[in-house]
C-alpha cells in the first residue's frame, strides 16, 4: 500500500520537477552560449500552448503511440518511486521507447522514418549498457530492487565507478543530447528536421514533451541511486552529472550512428566488463 502511494506521488510530482529541470537545462545552455535564455517555466508554457492547439494528425495511430509513450514513461517513474525491480523499470520505459518509434514510423515521411530507425539504433546502443549497470547494482546489493540500494551503508559510486561512467554514456544517448542527438534534436538544426518528433503536432507533441520530462526524472533517479546513502550526496551527484551532460551537449557536435554504436558498445562493454569482473572477483 505504501509503495502504491509512493508510486502515485512520484507520477504526480515527476512532470513538475522534470519540466523545471528542462527549463534549467535551457537556461544553462543559453548561458553556455552567452545568451540569457528563456524563463524557468518556459517548458510549461510550451506544453500548455501545444495542448491548446488544433488537433491535426496524419495517421490516427500516432495518437495511440503518443499516449502509450507517456503512460509507459509515467509508469516507469512510478515504479522507481515505489522502489520496485530495476529491470522492470527498465523494461517499462522500453515500452515507451518502442511506442515513440512506432509513432514516428506511422507516417510515411522520410524525416520521421529515418528518425525512427536512428532511434532504434540509439536503443540498441544504450539498452545493453543500462542492463549491465543494473547487473552491477545487483551484484552489490544482492537484489534487483531499488529499495535494496537504500539499505547499503556505502555509496554505490565507490564500487561501481566505471559502471557509473557507462551509465552516463547510456543516459546521454537516452536523452538524445549531443553528440548523440542522432534521431531527434531539441533544437531545430538537424538534417532530418526534428526526426522522430517531426510528425507529431499539437496535443500529441505536448504528450511527448511531458513524457520526456518523466524520462529526465527517471534518468536522474537512476543516477541518484549511486549515492543513495545521503540526501546531500544524492543531490550533489545528480547536479554534477546533469551539469556535465549539459556541458557535453554544448561542446560536442553530432556524431553518426556508426560511431555511436561502435564506440558505445566497445568502450561501454570494456568498462562495464572490467567493473563487473572486480565485483565477481570479490
Amino acid at each position: 500500500m505504501k509503495s502504491l502511494f509512493l508510486a502515485l506521488i512520484g507520477m504526480a510530482v515527476a512532470p513538475v520537477v522534470g519540466g523545471l529541470v528542462s527549463g534549467l537545462d535551457r537556461i544553462l545552455t543559453a548561458r553556455c552560449q552567452s545568451r540569457k535564455g528563456p524563463p524557468l517555466i518556459q517548458p510549461f508554457y510550451d506544453a500548455a500552448k501545444l495542448w491548446g492547439k488544433e488537433v491535426t494528425a496524419t495517421n490516427p495511430w500516432q495518437a495511440f503511440c503518443a499516449v502509450m509513450y507517456l503512460v509507459a514513461a509515467a509508469a516507469s517513474v512510478g515504479l522507481l518511486c515505489a522502489g520496485s525491480d530495476l529491470l522492470l523499470i527498465f523494461f517499462v520505459q522500453a515500452v515507451g521507447a518502442v511506442f515513440l518509434v512506432m509513432g514516428a514510423y506511422a507516417v510515411p515521411s522520410p524525416y520521421s522514418q529515418i528518425g525512427a530507425q536512428r532511434e532504434l539504433l540509439q536503443m540498441v546502443a544504450y539498452e545493453p549498457l543500462i542492463i549491465l549497470t543494473i547487473v552491477g547494482i545487483r551484484l552489490m546489493t544482492g537484489s534487483f530492487r531499488v529499495d535494496a540500494v537504500f539499505a547499503l551503508d556505502q555509496p554505490l559510486l565507490f564500487k561501481l565507478p566505471l559502471l557509473f561512467l557507462v551509465l552516463g554514456y547510456a543516459l546521454t544517448i537516452k536523452l538524445r543530447k549531443s553528440p548523440f542527438d542522432i534521431s531527434a534534436c531539441h533544437h531545430a538544426h538537424q538534417e532530418i528536421v526534428r526526426g522522430v518528433y517531426t510528425e507529431f503536432s499539437g496535443p500529441y507533441l505536448a504528450l511527448i514533451e511531458i513524457a520526456h520530462w518523466y524520462e529526465v526524472i527517471l534518468v536522474l533517479g537512476l543516477v541518484s541511486l549511486f549515492w543513495a546513502t545521503s540526501i546531500a550526496g544524492m543531490i550533489l551527484l545528480v547536479a554534477a552529472t546533469y551539469a556535465a551532460e549539459i556541458l557535453v551537449d554544448n561542446v560536442s557536435s553530432r556524431m553518426t550512428w556508426r560511431w555511436m554504436l561502435g564506440s558505445v558498445w566497445l568502450s561501454g562493454l570494456v568498462l562495464s566488463g572490467i567493473n563487473l569482473v572486480w565485483l565477481y572477483a570479490r
Partner: peptide, 21 residues
C-alpha cells in the same frame, strides 16, 4: 544569436510547420 537572443521570449526557430505557430 546572443546579441538578440529571441529565446528570451520563448521564441524558437523550430523548422517544422507541424510544430509551429
Amino acid at each position: 544569436t546572443p546579441l538578440y537572443d529571441v529565446e528570451r521570449f520563448g521564441i524558437l526557430n523550430i523548422g517544422n510547420p507541424k510544430h509551429a505557430d
